[in-house]
Simulated assay, not measured.
Amino acid sequence: MDLLSLLIACGIFFAAVLYSSVGHAGASGYIAIMALAGLAPESLKPAALALNILVATIASTKYIRTNAFSWSLLWPLIITSIPCAYLGGALTLPGDYYKPILGALLIYAAFHSFLTAKKSPTQTIQAPKKWLLICAGLMIGFLSGLVGVGGGIFLSPLLLFLRWGETRIISGVAAVFILVNSVAGLLGVMLMHPVLPEGIGYWAVAAILGGWLGAEFGSKRFSATVIRQVMALVLLVAGGKMFLG
């Protein structure tokens, strides 16, 4: 393993720790790291989705075992998100379109991390209408498959903003949502003969170790204020790189 692959593996490990601690799998972080390392854009989506599946599996198991999960909140989301993630994964955007969309996604994730790092809402929970969840799943699923993420960076802030669940429950739901959408998205990508980076095996090990550690902390209400802010800076730099070429 060369130095660049080692540095990417270290970055993926820390991203997996940070993201899995809040119920996410880290695809936007992996994309940021690989983009900063100069990997080909066509390899970012399949690599991020593959790593996402590993980490989301671990996070889902951890959160479900601690009863931080709601099937009634999840199922309306995934009945539309799964086919839409598959469809989005099967589509390949030209670089002129893919890079700006990916850059906007990363910058959005950065600002969301900055703005929510110190928030701990205690508002009254409101039961969502099923048709609204179905519509949200449709849109988030398609976008997640299109750009190569599990959709957690869209789903969690939406559920929190609308007060559709407690923070820990939302983290658990997001973990499972990310898992099923990442699988669907990767299956769609496989139709287009995806190209995986040479170091993906090493990065997978790093993601598994980081995902297990982060999910363990997350199930015990680990506070991630500072590290979310640091990750937000990485996402912001990577998003800007997508726009600047």
Rank of each mutant, 00 (worst) to 15 (best):
A127V: 14
I125N: 05
C135K: 07
L146V: 08
F154K: 01
H112W: 09
Q126C: 08
I134C: 07
A136T: 15
V147T: 00
L106T: 12
S113F: 01
I134G: 06
A136M: 12
I107L: 10
I125M: 03
T116M: 04
T124M: 01
F154Q: 06
G150I: 11
F111P: 06
P121M: 02
G150S: 10
A109N: 07
L138C: 14
G152I: 04
P100V: 09
L105Q: 14
I107R: 03
F154A: 07
Y108Q: 10
V147N: 04
F111K: 03
M139S: 13
T124F: 01
W131M: 09
A136W: 06
S113Q: 08
T116H: 00
G141Y: 02
F114Q: 09
G150L: 02
I134E: 09
Y108M: 12
A136S: 15
L105C: 14
A136I: 15
I101R: 08
I125E: 09
L138I: 05
F111I: 06
L132K: 09
A117I: 04
K119D: 11
P100H: 08
S120G: 15
K130A: 13
G148E: 10
G137C: 11
A110F: 04
G141D: 06
L105A: 15
G151R: 00
L115E: 01
S120T: 15
A127Y: 13
L138Y: 04
I134N: 05
A109Q: 01
G151E: 07
L155V: 12
A109V: 12
G145R: 10
A136G: 13
L132I: 14
L143T: 15
I153A: 01
W131S: 15
A136P: 12
W131L: 08
T122M: 11
C135V: 15
P100Q: 11
I153N: 03
K129Y: 02
A110W: 00
A109S: 12
Q123N: 15
L155R: 01
G148Y: 01
A117H: 03
G152D: 05
A117E: 05
A109E: 07
A136Y: 05
L143V: 11
V149Y: 02
T122L: 09
K129V: 14
F142K: 04
Y108F: 13
A117F: 00
T122A: 05
L138K: 04
A104D: 12
L133R: 08
L146Q: 00
I140N: 03
Y108K: 02
L115W: 01
L115C: 06
I153E: 04
S113A: 12
F142H: 10
G150N: 07
P121R: 06
F142T: 14
P121T: 09
F142N: 08
L106C: 00
A117M: 06
C135A: 14
V147P: 07
I107V: 14
P128M: 04
P121Q: 04
K129F: 02
L146I: 05
T122G: 00
Q123F: 13
G148P: 00
P121L: 01
L146M: 06
L138E: 09
S144T: 13
P121G: 05
